[in-house]
Nucleic acid binder design. Structure first.
Lengths: 129, 129
DNA sequence: TTGACATATTCCGATATCGGCATATCTTGT
DNA sequence: ACAAGATATGCCGATATCGGAATATGTCAA
């Protein structure tokens, strides 16, 4: 076992800049492969490979249109990523008050393991009001 | 050149589940390495390695406390990820109206390259209203 | 200084990646 | 059938990864 496969989840799929670029183009609307090739300036096989990865994790859908294959963004597959980072949004957003407690609660649910004597919540001191 | 280094950006660093797990624990407060080792059930060297990666991309900060090193979450380094996925939030949120136009505008700014005759905006048809 | 603890670094093997190139598959048109 | 276009797949080499084990660095205590 080495690194997690790029098709393991959306996190890995999206870690590649080219793939993000593809999604950014696809966000504007359904596109055939060749359009992406021209748009991104990549070789056609690489684009197809990237699209395959994106499809494996369900971030894009395909629709056969004659001899072309139209790729379309499937946004909801990115929701897990959004949900995860959203948890940390408070760290750069000034206004966090009651929200803080809600997030603390979310953290607790993810724990579930070894409550050692050293572990306690709420020991963080809000830096620089 | 093979795959982008895991220290290339936050996207790559966070693609690893263990690393996300570390951040999740760190979100509750500053912690020494050994606590993370116990919490995650990983070997100490692996934890140190993961922490190194997270530090390279600026997602965590260290603070020497005696013979211990206290790691602390540095959330804002995750903002690029948040900003990127936020663009796609509309795809799973029902209420998108004026927001749609704003996002379209954001897309335009990221372009800046080869405006071929075939490329045009706004050719997407909202599926399944 | 010696010992114990806490953490970081290095070496290793296995694996999955990414781009480039060639080629196979599938579809349309005549 | 044949040609041409569009897309997918396979092979290759180079590289960066991940976990494991051993070891090096750093810090406190007596």
């Amino acid at each position: 076992m080495a690194r997690a496969a790029t098709t393991a989840d959306a996190f890995n799929a999206v870690a590649e800049p080219r793939r993000r670029q593809i999604l950014d183009v696809l966000a504007a609307g359904e596109r055939p492969v060749n359009d992406l090739v021209r748009e991104l300036g990549l070789a056609q096989p690489q684009v197809s490979k990237h699209l395959r990865v994106l499809r494996e994790v369900g971030v894009v859908d395909v629709r056969g249109a004659g001899r072309r294959r139209l790729y379309r963004l499937n946004g909801p597959a990115l929701k897990p990523i959004h949900d995860w980072v959203k948890t940390y949004e408070r760290t750069w957003v000034a206004r966090f008050d009651a929200l803080d407690l809600v997030l603390e609660d979310l953290k607790c649910k993810e724990e579930g393991d070894g409550g050692d004597d050293e572990y306690r919540h709420g020991d963080r001191d809000a830096p620089g009001g």
